[in-house]
Amino acid sequence: MTSGNLLTDNPELYEARFPDPDLLAGRWAEDCLRRYGAGPGVLDLGCGTGRDAAHLHRAGRSVVGADLSEAMLAYAGERHPGPRYVRADLRDFSPGPAGPIRSVGPVGPDVFDAVVCLDSALLYCHTNDDLDGFLASCRRSLSPGGLLVAEMRNGAYFLGRDDLLNTPTDNSLTWQGVSYRSTTTLHIDRTAQLLRRTRVWTADDGSAPVEQRSAWRLLLPQELRHFLTAHGFAVLELHDGPGPRSEPPWQEGDVPGTAADADRLHVVARLTD
């Protein structure tokens, strides 16, 4: 068995495994931006394959998509053109040529009207210092009154629930004539406050299995609210749905909910100082 991230290394396989034919994630983010009157400049952090960044671009926004994966960025530029794509670490980024970007380059020459961070990308900030770095970078990168729009797993869902934990789940798909099977297991590391994931990929082309290990920070709603407030953000929405990955999923015209109990968490916050 080898180790690696088969999906990050093969963005087309990622889109096959996690299709979004109705572009719900990008449409939901655009709905949030419109509802609170965000200006046109948007930074999509953790942009992945660029689907959501490209949708925001087509909606008339000036978009920079940022990710750590060179493969994802190359794919995004080819398959989802329109935004400008750059490599950046969401734990420490800043606009301008002199920005401290962990040696991966600045995200752009100007401040933004909104930062968008979807599909639990924010939860790759595993420590409090990581979260402080992310939010401090957002604050430096946003114009006065700028928005932060994020969507992620909800740490509160796992309080007393284990239906998603410790039991392998299988998924199969065929890509480029090869049949793939993934077996995914989630477990909680309570000491580190992380949801850890092990995913093993096998294929019928004779290649060795690939094991991927990753983790997300488990943030509780009020904990997230505290971090945002401490960094000068006013929370406008904090709820478990509807959203692009909630059940049932968000539809055009849906209004934000008020509960924060289900397995997804959605936040919109405005920089106030």
Rank of each mutant, 00 (worst) to 15 (best):
G146F: 03
L147V: 11
V104C: 06
S120P: 01
R139V: 10
S137V: 13
S143F: 02
D130A: 07
V107P: 03
D129F: 04
R153V: 06
V116Y: 01
A114E: 03
P97E: 08
R153D: 02
R153E: 05
P100F: 03
N154G: 01
S143A: 14
S103A: 10
D113P: 06
P100I: 06
D130M: 03
S103G: 14
S143Q: 12
G108Q: 05
L123H: 01
R102K: 13
D129S: 15
N154Q: 00
D113L: 07
S137A: 15
F112S: 03
L123F: 01
L122C: 02
D113M: 06
G105C: 10
P106H: 06
A114L: 05
G108V: 07
G133K: 15
C117Q: 01
G146L: 08
R139F: 04
S141N: 11
G146T: 14
F134N: 08
L122D: 00
P106E: 06
R140L: 11
D110M: 11
A98W: 12
D130Q: 08
S141Y: 05
C117I: 01
I101W: 07
A114C: 09
S120A: 09
S137H: 11
D129E: 14
S103F: 06
G108Y: 03
D129N: 14
C138S: 15
V107G: 04
N128A: 12
C138N: 12
G99Y: 03
E151T: 11
V107W: 02
C125A: 10
R140V: 15
L147M: 09
L142W: 04
N154D: 00
L122K: 00
G108D: 04
G108F: 05
Y124I: 02
G105L: 13
I101N: 10
S137G: 15
G99V: 07
A150H: 00
C138E: 09
Y124P: 01
D119K: 06
R140N: 13
R102F: 04
P97R: 13
P97H: 08
D113H: 09
L142Q: 10
P144I: 15
T127S: 10
D113A: 08
P97N: 13
V116E: 01
L123M: 02
P109W: 04
L148V: 12
A114Y: 02
V115K: 02
L118A: 03
C138P: 15
A98Q: 14
L148A: 05
G145K: 10
C138H: 10
C125P: 00
